[in-house]
């Protein structure tokens, strides 16, 4: 028998029926993958129109948005796919935590998934910066200055990001390259690895005892692929509907025809970093912008080793063995949502 290809690796002949239910995974991992692919499919044509220079960036976005046929659709799809991706990926993380799917032997894949989420945040931020308007310019200024707060390597990090002491064309080209290549390639590799590891770790997290007993109802590959198709169509419908009726935001351009920067609107951070902006109002930037976000990441990364090392309860919703992990992640989630809402209403 021939060695199975990657698709067959991800879709074994049968999988446990309980865990293959939409009501269990909500298809969040697959949706995230589809959205990421949508971002590439829409992002590449956008690269043909976007000019990554301080003088022309805003202008080229306007040509894409208002002049090129279906340019508005491409840009809206790209924007909404990014928004949806951050949502589905975050929900995917919550599903994994609350159903105990990070447990041994899946700790390493938990790390891979977390890395993909973090890189997706950086991808979204770099994409936001490419708009190069008064809103994103404000976020870029705040964001890069936060890196200066990092102890010891702050200034080095700042110069690495910005490409000099001030925000210039160099900065824009760096963010452009990170956005279109430097972050995309690692994420693609990580996504492949993440999916590969799912099977390597014994398939999607499921109840071990039932599997061993051989009584677990199982689902054929064909059925799984069909379900994936339905979920894909559903998410595409949502993506296109959003893109047709709600345009991706733009603000007054920075540069040649810019108004004074003082007119920067009050919300500088992109929506997914509003919670950090809220923290920045409360505490000094070293804490609000560096230690707290890093602490959250570190806590999440170490979750399978520090908060819950037990094996039992895999694929069981809210299993008592994962109580600490569930409470901590739940608290972080509620905290981020509340801070985001508070900052949004500012």
């Amino acid at each position: 028998m021939a060695r199975p290809n990657f698709f067959e690796h991800l879709h074994p002949p049968t999988i446990p029926a309980r865990e293959a239910r939409f009501g269990y995974t909500f298809g969040l991992g697959g949706m995230s993958l589809l959205l990421f692919l949508s971002l590439i499919v829409t992002g590449v044509p956008l690269m043909f129109g976007y000019v990554p220079t301080a003088v022309s960036a805003a202008e080229s976005i306007r040509v894409i948005t208002y002049v090129a046929p279906f340019g508005w659709l491409l840009r809206n799809l790209h924007y909404w796919a990014a928004v949806l991706l951050l949502l589905t990926a975050s929900l995917h993380l919550l599903r994994v935590v609350f159903s105990g799917s990070y447990k041994k032997p899946r700790q390493f894949n938990w790390l891979l998934g977390l890395s993909i989420l973090l890189l997706s945040l950086l991808l979204s931020f770099s994409g936001y910066v490419l708009r190069w308007d008064v809103d994103t310019y404000g976020a870029l200024t705040v964001g890069t200055h936060i890196t200066q707060q990092v102890p010891l390597i702050g200034n080095w990090l700042y110069r690495l990001l910005v490409g000099g002491p001030n925000i210039t064309d160099t900065t824009l080209v760096r963010f452009y390259t990170w956005h279109t290549l430097g972050l995309v390639v690692p994420v693609l590799l990580l996504i492949g690895w993440h999916a590969f590891r799912v099977r390597r770790d014994g398939g999607i997290g499921h109840r071990e005892a039932e599997a061993v007993s051989g009584k677990t109802p199982r689902l054929a590959r064909r059925e799984l692929v069909q379900r994936e198709g339905v979920a894909a169509l559903a998410i595409l419908c949502v993506l296109f509907l959003l893109s047709i009726f709600w345009d991706a935001p733009l603000a007054a351009p920075v540069g040649r025809f810019a108004g004074p920067l003082a007119e920067t609107s009050h919300i500088a951070a992109p929506w997914f970093f509003l919670w950090i902006q809220a923290l920045l109002r409360l505490w000094p930037p070293l804490w609000a912008g560096v230690f707290i976000p890093l602490g959250v990441v570190l806590l999440l990364a170490l979750l399978p080793w520090v908060l819950d090392r037990r094996e039992e309860g895999t694929a069981v919703w809210f299993h008592p063995s994962g109580r600490w992990a569930q409470v901590v992640v739940g608290a972080i989630t509620v905290g981020i949502i509340l801070l985001t809402i508070v900052e949004w209403r500012q």
């Binding site: 198709g229 559903a234 893109s243 047709i244």
Partner: peptide, 21 residues
């Protein structure tokens, strides 16, 4: 099957939405 029905309905919806674009 349920999947086929769902695929047909969503596929049609998707075509209509693309037509909207």
């Amino acid at each position: 099957s349920g999947n086929q029905k769902a695929t047909a309905v969503l596929g049609l919806a998707f075509l209509l939405i693309v037509l909207g674009a």
